[in-house]
Design a protein around this nucleic acid. Structure first.
Length: 415
RNA sequence: GGAAGGGUGCCCGAGUGGUUAAAGGGGACGGACUGUAAAUCCGUUGGCUACGCCUACGUUGGUUCGAAACCAACCCCUUCCA
């Protein structure tokens, strides 16, 4: 990672102090721009799913900090690019999404980030833009004449992403080859429509960002800028955001605030300080204090991380509730009301209940879990797969707690 | 259009007629140890009404007592040539 320059503007300085800075183009000029005017900045996301996940959070936090510093963020949805489909991946003949699906995904994604960014018409309010607005209307020949002539294949072949594929003799379709052109075009189009001067992205997108800057010179005679964030991995080197249940989605419908809180609570020791800087709004000196905690005391810092990160995404109330639920479930061994709750009909076999609770995918899996001593009813391990759960197992509040391992709990209420 | 190689479980990858629900690795899950961490060690990793049965090695059909493996057609991927 290049050493971060000393920035004068509030935004870039904060951005760098929080560990989100990887590289940028024209550092000095960009710094000056940030210090003197409101800068409109965009980040692109694809909309193949109905929610973003934690992997996009660094980017979203970038937009949040921009907005906090009084600048204007644009969330660019790749509606147009999504229609082309991502051809990488071997033999999955990936289904192309219909327009309705893409539209639904966009709305859903937007609803998932409502707490992170303030959307609206104000000068620094975030806006959502879909690149289908212009990509859909492109005509082949005019596009080639206007835009295509500015792209040198010779140079595109030297781009890192392309070069790697060629060197490894991996296939690279024409469509993929065009992604960088589309992305470059998006940048210029956003400049024309919204006066957008800066594109932020992960460091892997650098080549595409530079293409956009270049195209800005040629088509609009304007100086555009790029700002990249580092790739975030965990201290033990794993890609961030993959857990048991798959990706950690941002939408509450996919991953509940409670589970989201748990995700952050289970952060590795070595990541606590870094994550506090990146993913919360906490003051830096407070973070310095928290990350200096040793051994088990670091758990306190993890709880704060979990609550703060959850508050940013789901709101303060949901975060406090998740924290409270966790406290009851883990520290007081209680029934913790806020745990995911499903309804059940008693009496029923323990296998059925475990499947109904979503703790396991099948009866067989439940049997295996029991054989491994991992399935608990009201905190007592079950040893008999044929165990019948009677209504008498309900506690005073009329619920029963089913657990897989030590961390995953579900409450069951008679229907 | 021609030639060659290939499609195996969540992923990578072995397997070229029976002992194969399919080696090995990764990942994941559970257990032990801990601090709801990491590392380490152990176990599990297709389904079911479960000492048995069902479904699975791109698709369909065939050869055989018996096929992931052999044959045919088709689909898809990769590479080289035009």
């Amino acid at each position: 990672m290049p050493a971060a320059p000393i920035f004068k503007s509030d935004f870039l300085r904060t951005f760098a102090e929080r560990g989100a800075y990887y590289d940028c183009s024209g550092a000095e000029e960009l710094d000056k721009l940030f210090a003197t005017e409101r800068v409109t900045t965009y980040i692109g996301f694809d909309c193949t799913a109905d929610s973003l996940h934690v992997g996009s959070l660094v980017q979203l936090m970038t937009l949040r900090r921009l907005q906090q510093a009084g600048h204007k963020p644009i969330l660019l949805m790749g509606g147009g690019t999504t229609k082309a489909g991502d051809p990488s991946g071997k033999d999955e003949t990936r289904q192309l999404l219909t327009n309705e699906q893409i539209e639904a995904n966009k709305n859903s994604i937007l609803s998932g980030v409502q707490h992170l960014l303030k959307f609206g018409d104000g000068p620094s309010d975030a806006v959502l833009v879909d690149n289908a607005e212009w990509l859909d209307k492109i005509e082949w020949i005019p596009f080639l004449r206007e835009v295509g002539r500015h792209f040198s294949v010779n140079r595109m072949l030297t781009m890192e992403s392309v070069k790697i594929r060629l060197e490894r003799e991996q296939p690279l379709s024409f469509l993929e080859f065009n992604y960088s052109i589309m992305q470059a075009y998006d940048f210029v189009e956003l400049y024309k429509r919204y006066g957008c001067r800066l594109q932020s992205s992960g460091s892997d997108q650098w080549g595409n960002v530079v293409s956009g800057i270049d195209l800005g010179h040629r088509l609009a005679n304007v100086q555009l800028y790029g700002l990249t964030t580092p790739l975030i991995t965990t201290a033990s080197g794993a890609k961030m955001g993959k857990t048991a249940a798959g990706a950690v989605w941002l939408n509450a419908g996919r991953v509940s605030p409670y589970d989201y809180w748990q995700f952050w609570r289970n952060t590795e020791d070595g990541d606590v300080g870094r994550f506090l800087r990146l993913f919360t709004d906490m003051k830096l000196d407070e973070i310095t204090r928290l990350e200096s905690l040793q051994g088990a005391e670091l758990n306190e810092a993890k709880k704060i991380l979990a609550t703060e990160a959850t508050a940013i995404l789901h709101g303060r109330e949901a975060a406090d509730k998740a924290a409270g639920t966790a406290r009851q479930a883990f520290e007081q061994g209680g029934m913790a009301e806020g745990l995911p709750t499903i309804s059940a009909t008693l009496p029923d076999g323990i296998l059925n209940l475990a499947v109904a609770a979503g703790l396991v995918a099948s009866n067989s899996e439940a049997r295996k879990l029991i054989a491994n001593n991992g399935l608990k009813l009201n905190d007592v391990a079950i040893s008999d797969p044929k165990f019948m759960v009677e209504a008498s197992a309900l506690n005073a509040d009329g619920v029963l707690k089913l657990s897989s391992g030590k961390k995953k709990h579900v409450l069951m209420k008679p229907a």
